[in-house]
Computed example of a mutant assay.
Amino acid sequence: MAAVLLVLLLALCVASLLIGTGSTAPGRAWDYLLGEHTARADPQLRLAVVDVRLPRTLAAVLVGVCLGTAGCLLQAATRNPLAETGLLGVNSGAAFAVVVGLTFFGASSATALLVWALLGGMAASAVVLLLAAGGRAAGSPLRLVLAGSALGATFHGLTSYVLLGTQSTFDVYRYWTIGSLAGVRTADLLPLLPLAAAGVLVAFGCARPLAALGLGDDSARSLGHHPGRIRLVVAAAVSLLAGCAVAVAGPIAFLGLLAPYAARALAGARMAAQLLLSALVAADVMIVADLLARVVIRPWETPVSVLLAFVGGPLLVWIARSSRLSTAGAAS
């Protein structure tokens, strides 16, 4: 199944390079990819394929892999099949940091917003980890969720307070917070690749401890693992992955929740397979959503987050009502 999803991902990447909101025909873009002389000499074609569509394709893969892996980690660590990355306060921390950067430091470029979002998301997660690390219940699922929810609500209130007095900041923030891959540049993605790679490596390194954790905390301890430490390491990895995703595309809902659910249905209880399939499923879905965003109301664009919400909302209701919900949590 992983091979099928990988082949599908490659095919979708090619389609992403061929299809856009502009007037460039897919046939001409295909000629460019094949190295046809007249196509390579066309600066307009190079602009469309290399400068616009290629960064968006890479960004969609990066965001999908990060959110899929982070969601799978979080659901396994908390044994909650409805958990998603917003629980650790990453989205609200990134949003508050963007507003602060816009209002008090004059950040206006895409690169500046990316840096502020990344720093805000990771800072919020660091605070959650500190709040959840102390005491006898260190690293427990309930403590992580409560700390993340409390901090998220605090950041949301602060963000609203700052936005009330600055209309110009609100205009820019409104565009960022809808979640989109428009305007992403390859240069913006390169600094995030090492962080995302580190998060993915930590995720797969946690596969065996998380499998033991799925049997229950007492069983994990009897096998020589420390549940609190495992969850804190997982939370740190989730912070890296979700911070990178939010920095690139803004808050993207549902993807980090739905991809792990699909991965569990395909992989069963095998944790490493769940992580791999969740990353691939999320990357595939993200590229499909971005392709649809370009063509649904051409020549304008629909925000990716809106399309994912149309699919994710009803599907989440179905999951919540499904009799398989409890078994999905146990399989993690």
Rank of each mutant, 00 (worst) to 15 (best):
A198Y: 00
L190T: 15
S180K: 03
L190P: 09
R185C: 09
G199I: 03
Y173N: 02
I178L: 12
D171M: 11
G179A: 01
R185I: 10
G199N: 00
L195N: 05
Y173A: 05
S180C: 04
L193V: 15
L189E: 10
D188I: 09
L190Y: 10
W176H: 05
R174K: 09
L195Q: 10
L181A: 01
R185P: 10
R174L: 14
Y175P: 06
D188V: 06
A187M: 08
A198D: 04
L193I: 14
D171I: 03
V172C: 04
A182H: 10
G199M: 00
L192Q: 07
T186W: 09
V172T: 15
L195E: 07
T177N: 12
A197S: 12
G179E: 04
L195T: 11
T169N: 09
S180D: 11
V184K: 07
V172W: 04
G179L: 05
A182P: 05
V200R: 04
V200P: 05
V200C: 11
P191D: 08
V184P: 08
A182F: 08
W176V: 05
P194E: 07
D171Q: 14
P194R: 12
T177E: 13
V184Y: 00
Y175A: 12
L193S: 11
A196H: 00
L195W: 14
L195G: 07
D188A: 13
A197Q: 04
L181R: 03
G179V: 01
A198I: 06
T186Q: 11
L192P: 06
L181H: 02
Q167W: 09
T169A: 15
G179F: 07
A196E: 04
L201A: 15
R185W: 06
F170N: 08
T186P: 06
S180M: 05
T177C: 07
W176D: 04
L195A: 10
D188T: 09
V184S: 01
S168E: 14
T186E: 09
S180V: 01
V172I: 14
L181D: 00
G183V: 06
V172K: 12
D188H: 14
L189D: 11
A187F: 03
P194K: 15
